[in-house]
Every structure is written in structure tokens, then in C-alpha cells.
Design a protein around this nucleic acid. Structure first.
Lengths: 242, 242
DNA sequence: CGCGGCTTTGATGTTCATCAAGTAAAGTGG
DNA sequence: CCACTTTACTTGATGAACATCAAAGCCGCG
């Protein structure tokens, strides 16, 4: 994992924070209710990290020191049991909050996070965030809302997936990447067949078999990791149970 | 559903709040960081409700007006789809927070809640809680921690259950009631076989079959809803996968 | 180049849902 | 309070869905 400090590239507008937080989409989300002085302090104390595909960002069990969020890229959030088997909980995009889960429930990370593509995270000392929340209820409330939405979405996805069979689950994953991540019917799968299986609670063999079926039925075309969705409506029907 | 207002029965210690919050276990959890004046105000404006087994406490989709928590009793938290099929998310005990989930993520309830035994809830206007959180960061942070723990536990339980087969899931449920709810190896099941099935994502028939198997293997004894766990160690092994 | 992990397909058996049919229990109206 | 209706429970039989095992091809990497 490489680790670089972001440099101020002289933004055009607003104050100089000694960093480039002004241009970060996440700023609004987090710091709506924090005044500029504090924002500048946070901003200059933050740490920006770069990760390549496959890099471990957070390891389950590690001490929870930083509040980490995803600035760009794509990550998977997962748990691994003693036998080494993983279960993927969520595919995290920017504006999702990487370490948001479990930040306030424990002193250790409850889940691991690994980059699925080149990703950039920002880290802020958790102790500072907690101070801020104590001092500033609006900020705390804002955080609470975001957290709650992320959690609720995970629960609803789990329930949705549990209702479906193999074909429905597989279609669900394809549509998730097409609609929620890449916003295109043609994309490169950022995860392996095995990881799809860990995501939907099936075996890799059966995921592959189902993808092959979809291909034979001309619902999708497959070229390694390249996926093109051909019959989206049919795929949707399969996902919603068919 | 009956609805009674709690009456002050003249508590011995501390101030008179015009209510009996002093004797509520939940008080500490919520209002550690709120001063007595505000506490008194909240306390006298709260509404206490009684529910019998089977009473609906919250209906999915209802406007989220009150912050509701479970003072005593047992509830199920669940979602129902268009075809009328339910999925149970969690069995809620006192000190769990009935309306905690989704309170801060939406304007509507995302889940339904039904009483599994006689239950007592306290309701506080959500708008008041939000004001409090804004004014008082410590309170907000406290709430955030509790919420986060509840959510994390749900996610971990979902993952655990997903790893297991029918026998493991059924054992898991029995042990949950024995250890986490009733703290006894002999208890009356508060939910039907069908509800167990909705909880673990199986069919009622197979839940029944598995319970019968456990009975034939002398791991448990069954008399209607009365369950006695005989071979706890073996049940534990089955739960942890055997 | 060769090793290890991911991928793919096929064959086989297990696990589970579904259907059916009957019993017990619990609620309902006269 | 009893006959009636409904809902929950139970067991068996069957087939579908899925995991597992096996074998071979592929790809990336040291």
C-alpha cells in the first residue's frame, strides 16, 4: 500500500485550508454544521491514503483509531471466520462511509475492508470526531442519520437477497453493479466469481453456472470480467423472482 | 391495544418528576448526559403504552413521530413484502430500542413491530429527541453508540445464520431464547414455528421436522410451546456447525 | 517455467421447498 | 358452552435447488 500526503494545489475559490478539502464531495456530507475554523484544522490534520486493487485498508480486530471514509474508488466490507471463509457485507462506494460501521459501537474494527480498485481514503483521528460530536450536536445528528441509512440499506439488501434463489441473487448482483456502481450496462466486474459467491451466500461453482446460463440465454455477454447486460428487463424479472 | 398513563406513586428518593422514570432501567441508558430539569420535562411528557401478545406496536410505513423504546416485554421486528410474506429481523428485549432502527434515517418506519408478550413501551416525541441531540452532543453520541451496537449485532447475527444449515439455524434460535432471553434451559417459545421459519429463512415444515429430530435425538423435549434443552453441549455443537 | 489460485463444466448426492393430508388447538358466532 | 371455522402443527412423499467432489484449462506471478 502506498501512502501519499495530499498537497494543496491552490484551489480557485474559498479559503485556503492547507489541503484540498474544498474540492471533496464528502465535505458537505460531513461538515455541514462545522464552522470554517474547525474545518480548516480538521482538514489540515487529515491523512489521505492511496490503495491499489487488493490492498487491505482495514483489518478486522485492529484498534479503531481513525475515522476513515472513502473519497474515491470501490471497496468491499467483509468478515472472515476462523476457517478463513469470508462473507461480504457490502460493496462500498464513495459517499458510503468506510469505517462508519462499528466506529461508534466498539474499540475495534468489526469488519475488514479491502480495495477493489484504486481507492483514496481520508482519515481523521476518531478522538477528534468524537470531540466534535460532543461539542456539536448538529454534527452528531447528521452523522447519526448517515450511519443509520447505511445500516438500514445493508439490512434491507440482506433480506432481499435471502428471499431470492440462486438465479435471482446473481441477477441482483449484476444489476447492482450496472445500476448502482457503474451506471452502465457494460462494465468490468470488480470482484471474482468467488467473491460474488461470498456476497450472496452461494458457492463459486453455482455462481459461474448461473452466469453461464444467463449467457446461453442471451441475457448477458461475458468476456472474462467484462460483462454486458443485453436483456435488462428479463434480468430484472429474474431478480424480482422468476 | 390498551393505553394507560403511568401515575406517580410517590417515589422515595430524588425529585418528583410527575412520573416514575426514576425507577426505569432505561433512564440511565438514555439520559446520562441530560440534566434533571430537562429529564423532568421529558419524563412528564412521555407516553407509556401497554400491549398484549399479538398487538401491533409499529406498522411499517407509518409516519415516524415518536421515539419508542421497550420498557418491558418482548417484541419482534420484521418486514412484510407485497405478497404478505414476513421476514423477522430481530427479537427485541427491554434495553433494546424498538424504534431506534430507522429513527434517524427516514421519516417513516421501515419495519413493523409486534408484541410477543405483554409489553410496555415509552414514547417520547421524536422532535424533542432531535432537539436534545442538537443541543447536547454527549447525548447524541451516546445514542449513536447504542444504535450502532444494535445494528452491528443484527448484521453479525444475519451472517452467522447464513453460514449454517437448517439444523444449525434451529439450534441457534433455541439457544438464543435459552441464553439471551429467558436465561433458562426451560422456557415457553414466544413465537410460532412459522415465525421461527421467518426468522431463520426456512420453511415452517422444515423447522418442525428439525425440532422433531432434536426431540427424537433427546437433545430437547417439546410440549407444544414448552421447550426444555436437555443436551446443551450437543446443541451448541450443532449450532456452531455439526 | 511451474506453481497456485481462479475459472469452468460435469457428475453425484445432500439439503431443502413444495405438495398433500391429517391432527390438534384456538378462536368465533350462535 | 358447543358446533364451527380457522389457524397452527405434524408427518410423509416427491422433486427442485444447491453443495460437493473431481478434473481440466486458464492466467498471473515469482
Amino acid at each position: 500500500m502506498s501512502q501519499i500526503q495530499s498537497s494543496n494545489q491552490g484551489s480557485i475559490e474559498k479559503k485556503q485550508f492547507g489541503c484540498d478539502c474544498e474540492r471533496c464531495d464528502l465535505r458537505d456530507l460531513f461538515f455541514d454544521h462545522v464552522d470554517d475554523t474547525i474545518l480548516a484544522e480538521i482538514c489540515s490534520s487529515k491523512e489521505e491514503n492511496n490503495y491499489e486493487k487488493g490492498d487491505l485498508i482495514i483489518r478486522e480486530g485492529e484498534d479503531l483509531i481513525n475515522f476513515i471514509y472513502l473519497r474515491s474508488g470501490l471497496v468491499k466490507l467483509y468478515r472472515t471466520d476462523k476457517e478463513g471463509k469470508s462473507q461480504i457485507i457490502k460493496i462500498g462506494k464513495p459517499l458510503d462511509f468506510v469505517s462508519l460501521l462499528s466506529v461508534f459501537s466498539d474499540t475495534m474494527h468489526k469488519y475488514s475492508v479491502t480495495a477493489l480498485e484504486h481507492s483514496v481514503t481520508c482519515s481523521i483521528k476518531l478522538s477528534r470526531i468524537i470531540e466534535l460530536a460532543k461539542e456539536n450536536g448538529e454534527f452528531a445528528l447528521n452523522l447519526m442519520q448517515k450511519m443509520s441509512r447505511v445500516y438500514d440499506q445493508i439490512i434491507i439488501d440482506f433480506l432481499e437477497i435471502r428471499k431470492k434463489h440462486l438465479r435471482g441473487r446473481t441477477a441482483h448482483v449484476l444489476l447492482f453493479f450496472a445500476d448502482s456502481v457503474y451506471k452502465s450496462n457494460h462494465f468490468e466486474l470488480p470482484i471474482s466469481r468467488k467473491e460474488i459467491a461470498e456476497f450472496i451466500g452461494m458457492t463459486p461453482e453455482n455462481v459461474i453456472r448461473t452466469l453461464s446460463e444467463f449467457r446461453k440465454d442471451s441475457l448477458i455477454s461475458i468476456n472474462g470480467k467484462q460483462i454486458a447486460i443485453i436483456e435488462k428487463k428479463k434480468l430484472l424479472m429474474i431478480s424480482e423472482h422468476g
